[in-house]
């Protein structure tokens, strides 16, 4: 489903360039549950952002469903993000002034249009049917992350990318989030790629990719 070929990403740092990813090659098949691990600064987030079409590689080719999206225009990339990819961020990234329900509806806003019933179903799915009218500030961190998951899954994407989804949560809420995400993978066959620092969480995955200094240093299958 995902193929990275010699992907390099550099950022300008004043006069010098900072290379975050160095010629990374990677294949991820449909339906896989993958954990990406590595120390901070190793390029995990950059890699995930590239996979999520939020950023473009400096060089190399990125194929998503056999299409070379690294050559897509920004409008085409937006469509790919909307149709195929659900994001779950460490900082939730909910719109603070909208209710939980409206935030979930936003997940469909740019792909086919809002649908209140589907949004409600998605909230029920993550166990927040009762709290649909609450704003993010009235919800706990775990609840906010569940709203974010509902927003990601409401459009039935084949791929969910999660960047340290439990990083801001206590271990109990974190475990709930992991349970929801893994059950999505198990029940719907969604391809799930997540960044984590937690070896316990990584152990739930089928495949662990270790990054170091912008390169894949090892892979393991727990």
């Amino acid at each position: 489903m995902i193929r990275l070929e010699n992907i390099t990403k550099t950022y300008p740092m004043g006069k010098r360039e900072l290379t975050v990813l160095r010629e990374v090659n990677l294949d991820i098949k449909q339906g896989e549950l993958v954990a990406i691990m590595g120390p901070s600064g190793s390029g995990k987030s950059t890699m995930l952002n590239l996979m999520g079409c939020l950023d473009k590689p400096t060089s190399g080719k990125y194929y998503l469903d056999d299409r070379e999206v690294s050559r897509f225009s920004s409008g085409e990339l937006a469509q790919v993000r909307g149709r195929k990819i659900g994001f779950v961020f460490q900082t939730f990234n909910l719109l603070p002034r909208l209710s939980a329900l409206a935030n979930v509806e936003l997940g469909m806003r740019y792909v086919g249009g809002s649908d209140r019933q589907k949004a409600t179903d998605a909230l029920v799915r993550v166990g927040l049917g009762e709290r649909a009218g609450h704003r993010p500030t009235e919800l706990s961190g775990g609840e906010q992350q569940r709203v974010a998951i509902a927003r990601a899954l409401v459009k039935n994407p084949p791929l969910i990318l999660a960047d340290e989804p439990t990083g801001n949560l206590d271990s109990k809420s974190g475990q709930e989030i992991i349970n929801i995400l893994t059950s999505l993978h198990a029940e719907q066959g969604i391809t799930l790629i997540m960044i984590t620092h937690d070896a316990g969480i990584a152990s739930h995955c089928q495949r662990i990719i270790n990054l170091m200094d912008g390169q894949v240093v090892s892979e393991e299958t727990p």
Binding site: G75, A78, Q79, N93, G107, R109, Y110
Partner: peptide
């Protein structure tokens, strides 16, 4: 956030 959710420039 809106762009991550698929918003195009014209949206």
């Amino acid at each position: 956030i809106r762009k991550a959710l698929g918003a195009r420039e014209r949206d």
